[in-house]
Every structure is written in C-alpha cells, then in structure tokens.
Amino acid sequence: MGNSISQGITSTQFYLHGRKNFTRTGYEEAKKSFKPGALEQVDLKDKVYLVTGANSGLGAELTEYLASKGGRVYMVCRNKERAEVAKKAIVEKTKNEQVEVIIGDCGLKEDVQSVVEQFGSKEKKLDCLVCNAGTITDDKVLTKEGVETTFATHLLHGAYTLSTLATPYLEAAEEPRVVMVSSGGMYNSKFPKWSVSTATSETYKYDGQLAYCYAKRGQVLLCEEWAKQNKKIAFASCHPGWVDTPGVSAVYGDKKSYLEPLRSLWEGTDGIAWLCVAPKEELKSGEYYLDRTPQRKHLSGPFFTDGSFTKNTPQEVETMMTNLSKWSKEGPSSTA
C-alpha cells in the first residue's frame, strides 16, 4: 500500500511538473534566458557526430541542424530505406554532403559492435555521441540475443555498450561529450531490482511504460557514474520535453491531448543540440538537462520535494553498473 501511495504522488507530481515545464509553454518561458546566438553562431567544420535513431523525429531534426552548421554526421538507423530517404532530404536541405548512414539496431550487441567498427574505419575521433535510439512495447519482447527490447535499446547496448566502445574515439577529440536523450518519464521511478529492469523476474508482470521509465532512469544514473570516472568526456542526460513526434502519437494516441501544447520538433531538439555544440566548460557533466539547463532529478516527496521514492542507494547503483558491464560483455546469462 505504501508503494502504491508513493507511486500515485510521484506520478501526479510528475504530470503537474510536466504541464508547467515540458510543454511548449515551458519552452517559451525557458527560451527567455537563452544566450543569444548559442546555436546560430557556431561552426562545426571538422567536428564529427554519431547520432542514433537519426532517420526520424528528434534524431533527424538534430542531424539536420548539425549538418547545417558544417558538421560531419553519421546517422545510425535500423532501416536502410528510411535512413537513405532521410539522409537525402537532409543533404538537399543543408547542402552538406558529409552525412553518412550506418545501419544497425541499437538493441543488439552485434550491431552496436558493427556500428563502431564501421565508424572507426572512417574516423579517428568522435566529438559527440548522441544516444537517441529508442523503442517502447506494450508486451514483453526479447531481441534475438535474448534481452528485453526496451532495456536493450535504451540502456544496455544503445547507451552502455555503444558509449563504452566509442570511448577511444571520444577521448581522441578535444571537447568530447556523450548526450543521452532520456525522458521526463524517469521521474516516475528509481532504477529497480535488476530482475525487474530486465524483465527477467518470474513474479514481475511486465509493464511497457514502466520498462521505459526504468531504462530512462538508468541513463540518468549512468551519466552520473561515468562523469565521476572519466573527466575527459562530458556526460549529460536530457529531456526534450513533450514533443509532437510519431512516437508520442503511437504511444499515447488520443491521450496525447493531455500533454498539449506539445512542442515542435525543433523546440524539443533545441536543448539536445545545445549539449552537442556548447563549449565544454559550459556543461556540467553528470547532470540531467532540459532546455539548456540542469534540472532536479527527483520530485516524489510531498509538495514537490525530492522525497526518497525515486532515489537509488550507492549500493544499488553499483549493482546496476556491475550488471551492465557483465551483460554488455557476456550477455544475459551473467548477473551479479
């Protein structure tokens, strides 16, 4: 009963907080404090970017922006046909031919390894990795490697394995950073027991929305931990706000009216783009951003205080990191 009440308070406060900050109204308010020219007056010539989930939505919008400023951008996409269509449109609009497609499913270890190998065959350094690829399912679905799809795509391989393999290329850049596109949904939960987060518990009833929240909270914790361990690279998780994307329409359907006024694609991409191009000294590694500004990470207590319901202990975070490392290397047969 206690957990049910805490979850109810947390979910309600998440929604109310979101109505104020995550909508287009929230963006317009935040925009008043943006530094003039921060995105417009940049030259990304000789900068190299790797963006996952880049053929539609936020990923395509971000790729277009980076290319428009002269950046060399690698689009990581699952579907070759859709990727090539998106690439063609971006090149035609930006007049930048330095846009390339790498095909790979970020939920699969073998594909992530192939993506980094293909990237490494063409580049010696990576200025910014954007972990944007994602998915959400109503029912539990396993990848062909035996891992629950949402967890694998958002956290295990799409964030942890990819960033780990890309680290040598990031460390070769002058001001490297990793940007993980998380979600405000992470406010609804802490990172749960490993068997729950990976949907391997025999007693846990799978919930697609919660699986998404768990993975997104995991991304926030991952950036926190890596920020402590690697001072060369800046790690940031971020929330694009409530954006009018095909993904939102697919998940919420008619209920997306509760999230209105929804942000445009660019309004959701703005903060991600800023994290990609801002001088490194302006970034706070390990923080969770919305609209170019670090945000609080918890709001589950009474009257929007942090509370404890969504907070993980250091031991729980250590277990998460240990298991991510093991599963990334050995697969789902190994668990701490």
Score class of each variant (00 low, 15 high):
residue 103 I to R: 00
residue 226 W to G: 14
residue 272 I to T: 00
residue 185 G to W: 04
residue 173 A to E: 03
residue 202 E to R: 12
residue 257 S to G: 14
residue 142 L to T: 07
residue 253 G to Q: 01
residue 263 R to F: 07
residue 173 A to F: 05
residue 204 Y to P: 05
residue 135 T to C: 15
residue 101 V to S: 04
residue 13 Q to P: 03
residue 46 D to G: 12
residue 168 P to K: 10
residue 28 E to I: 12
residue 42 V to T: 04
residue 217 R to N: 14
residue 160 Y to V: 10
residue 135 T to W: 09
residue 204 Y to E: 15
residue 32 K to W: 11
residue 315 Q to E: 15
residue 245 T to Q: 04
residue 219 Q to V: 10
residue 129 L to M: 12
residue 60 A to H: 03
residue 52 T to V: 06
residue 271 G to M: 00
residue 299 L to F: 03
residue 69 K to F: 08
residue 24 R to I: 08
residue 76 V to W: 01
residue 45 K to P: 05
residue 145 E to P: 01
residue 41 Q to K: 15
residue 81 E to P: 00
residue 243 V to R: 01
residue 131 C to L: 13
residue 71 G to T: 04
residue 209 Q to H: 14
residue 312 N to D: 04
residue 202 E to C: 09
residue 332 P to M: 09
residue 313 T to Q: 07
residue 78 R to P: 03
residue 47 K to C: 13
residue 127 D to M: 13
residue 127 D to W: 06
residue 313 T to Y: 06
residue 298 H to P: 02
residue 167 T to D: 09
residue 273 A to H: 01
residue 210 L to C: 11
residue 163 S to L: 13
residue 81 E to M: 10
residue 49 Y to N: 10
residue 94 T to Q: 02
residue 91 V to T: 02
residue 13 Q to R: 05
residue 227 A to I: 10
residue 122 K to V: 09
residue 127 D to R: 07
residue 24 R to Y: 12
residue 37 G to C: 14
residue 84 E to S: 01
residue 50 L to S: 04
residue 197 S to N: 00
residue 19 R to C: 15
residue 281 E to G: 12
residue 285 S to I: 04
residue 106 C to Y: 00
residue 178 V to G: 01
residue 280 K to W: 07
residue 134 G to A: 08
residue 72 R to I: 11
residue 242 W to N: 07
residue 15 Y to A: 15
residue 227 A to E: 08
residue 248 V to K: 02
residue 127 D to F: 11
residue 265 L to Y: 02
residue 291 D to L: 10
residue 165 L to R: 02
residue 200 T to Y: 00
residue 164 T to D: 11
residue 77 C to K: 01
residue 311 K to G: 05
residue 130 V to Q: 03
residue 315 Q to D: 15
residue 89 A to W: 03
residue 72 R to E: 15
residue 170 L to F: 03
residue 304 F to G: 04
residue 159 A to Y: 12
residue 264 S to F: 07
residue 87 K to Q: 10
residue 146 G to I: 09
residue 233 I to E: 00
residue 209 Q to L: 14
residue 156 L to E: 02
residue 159 A to H: 13
